[in-house]
């Protein structure tokens, strides 16, 4: 589904990603872990199409398409979803109205007619339940005045509504208490199918107790330096990132 080859990216002339290779197949959950400053958020920003980052080398192929040639909206329409580490507040734009517009633009891209109002409402109700999001929140302006946990839940709610093929969760666990974490993880697990894939980007192992990855990658200094089964996350938790640094620098 996703194939990243030798990806180099920089911002303001400073190289952050220094040759990333990653293969993600449908049905899989990948965790990307790493210390602060290793390039985790840069990777998610490059995947989503943030224009501040310049890709200097390498390629990203998503379901046969060159992702780097697509605009952020076309990536979303192809089925890439980024759950933001810091979701943006948009006063005056209602969550519901925004999602309706998003769904219908994605449908138009695929040559489909706008969604029937009753189908949309049904989906809204179902997915709200999935992430235990209060109906009132769904009707409010996007993220405006939401608590940290509500914002993260709203990201997963949007993901549920848009039904992406590839979801990238960027530090979705940061700032979440254990109840919110359980709800968010529960939402992600319920949305998992053999046709979609998830990349969980995180600093801590905690989230991976709830979202169990098939593969764990360690990102350090702009490169994936270690790949292993889910137990690798536990090892990292136990030993800290220093052992990775020592291994790399040895």
């Amino acid at each position: 589904m996703l194939s990243i080859k030798n990806l180099h990216a920089s911002i303001d002339g400073k190289e952050i990603l220094k040759g990333i290779n990653l293969e993600v197949k449908a049905g899989e959950i990948h965790a990307i872990m790493g210390p602060n400053g290793s390039g985790k958020s840069t990777l998610s920003a490059v995947l989503a199409g943030r224009e501040e980052y310049e890709v200097t080398e390498g390629e990203i192929i998503f379901n046969g398409k060159n992702l780097l040639e697509l605009s952020p909206e076309d990536r979303a329409r192809e089925g890439v979803f980024l759950a933001f580490q810091y979701p943006i507040e948009i006063p005056g734009v209602s969550n519901v109205n925004f999602l309706k517009t998003a769904i219908n633009e994605i449908r138009a891209y695929k040559g489909l007619a706008p969604m029937e109002a009753k189908d949309f409402l049904a989906r809204l109700k179902e997915k709200q339940k999935l992430v235990e999001l209060d109906g009132k929140l769904a009707n409010r302006s996007v993220n405006e005045g939401f608590s940290g946990g509500e914002k993260k839940r709203n990201e997963i709610f949007q993901m549920a509504m848009l039904e992406p093929k590839l979801a990238i969760l960027d530090e979705t666990d940061s700032g979440l208490d254990i109840d919110a974490l359980r709800i968010v993880a529960g939402g992600v697990n319920k949305l998992k199918s053999k046709d979609n894939a998830t990349i969980v980007i995180t600093h801590y192992q905690r989230l991976l107790d709830y979202i169990v990855p098939d593969v764990v990658h360690v990102l350090y200094n702009g490169k994936i330096v270690k790949t292993g089964p889910k137990e690798l996350a536990l090892e990292l938790e136990e030993k800290g990132y220093d052992f990775i640094k020592e291994e790399v620098n040895a």
């Binding site: 909206e73 979803f81 943006i88 948009i90 769904i103 633009e105 994605i106």
Partner: peptide
């Protein structure tokens, strides 16, 4: 720009993201 990107990352075109934001601005 952050708001525009957020909306585009959900599948809205740049034009409709801007439209939505202008509409939100005026709606007050």
């Amino acid at each position: 720009a952050d708001k525009i990107f957020y909306l585009r990352a959900r599948g809205l075109s740049e034009t409709s993201a801007k439209k939505l934001l202008m509409h939100a601005f005026a709606s007050e």
